[in-house]
């Protein structure tokens, strides 16, 4: 038996909304330690990795008697989650050898309980091992700032060059009709931690990435006030949105490299 009671259905809604356009079908891997999801986009350029820990406060109850994989169409899951109120408590439930995933939405005052079942899918996908590595540069910034940068620069070109150096981080685009550059300096004087830009730098990095994917990742902006960008030369960038009381959602994007 698998049963996970999440206090805020809005968190699950936001996660699925941010994934469903790039990742059509995905396996939720459930174990006693929590729920993980790893998936590649159809072009195999981007990868997402979601971790929701069972021992965090976002789950009111969590039970997973044996490891199970729940293959779900994320578009369908998004439709089901639209049936939940933002303040509803959502319970996910499945048997040990499941064909069906059940969603139960309880309204805050318990006057309305709704239940939906969806059929599970067999999804043949290979899990990739993501090594724990030290990155040359980690930028922490407000998530809405990153969203704005990606959105602004995507009007002029297809790829952004991210340049991390000791003064801060530069985002540059050069297209056929024009070019643009946004410089972010490290901030030390800002009161609120979530408004700060910090750059942890071991080595400078200059790397180009497709804006189409970065813009898609920023659909996760509402999950977190801050976003962390981890970069090393000639390796995928990690765009991480921490999810309070649950874990995190990470996106990996392969770089564009001179051939």
């Amino acid at each position: 038996m698998f049963e996970a009671k999440m206090l805020q259905s809005s968190v699950l809604k936001k996660i699925i909304e941010s994934l469903k356009d790039l990742f059509a079908d995905a396996n939720f891997d459930c174990s006693s330690s929590g729920i993980t999801l790893q998936d590649m986009d159809s072009s195999h350029v981007a990868l997402c990795y979601l971790k929701l820990r069972s021992d965090e406060e976002g789950f009111e109850d969590y039970r997973c008697d044996r490891n199970i994989t729940l293959g779900v169409n994320l578009g369908l899951m998004s439709k089901i989650l639209k049936c939940a109120g933002n303040d509803d408590v959502v319970t996910l439930r499945a048997e040990d050898e499941p064909n069906i995933l059940t969603f139960i939405f309880d309204s805050k005052n318990s006057e309305r309980v709704s239940k939906y079942d969806i059929k599970l899918m067999e999804i043949d996908s290979e899990l990739l091992g993501i090594p724990d590595t030290d990155y040359s540069c980690v930028v922490k910034m407000p998530s809405h700032e990153f969203q704005r940068i990606c959105s602004n620069l995507s009007q002029l070109g297809d790829s952004v060059t991210i340049d991390c150096h000791k003064e801060g981080v530069d985002f540059k685009v050069a297209g056929e009709q024009g070019s643009g550059a946004i410089k972010l300096k490290q901030t030390t004087s800002v009161d609120k931690e979530e408004d700060q830009v910090t750059v942890q730098l071991n080595e400078p990095v200059t790397q180009s990435f497709a804006l189409k994917f970065l813009c898609a990742f920023t659909k996760a902006t509402s999950l977190s006030d801050t976003v962390n960008l981890s970069l090393t030369q000639d390796t995928p960038v990690v765009v991480e949105y921490p999810i309070a009381q649950h874990g995190y959602l990470r996106f990996y994007l392969a770089p564009k490299i001179e051939e």
Binding site: L47, G129, K256
Partner: peptide
């Protein structure tokens, strides 16, 4: 020539 890399060329199958 700038080429888009694949994510699978960086991470191995687990």
């Amino acid at each position: 020539m700038i080429g888009q890399q694949k994510i699978s060329s960086f991470f191995r199958v687990a």
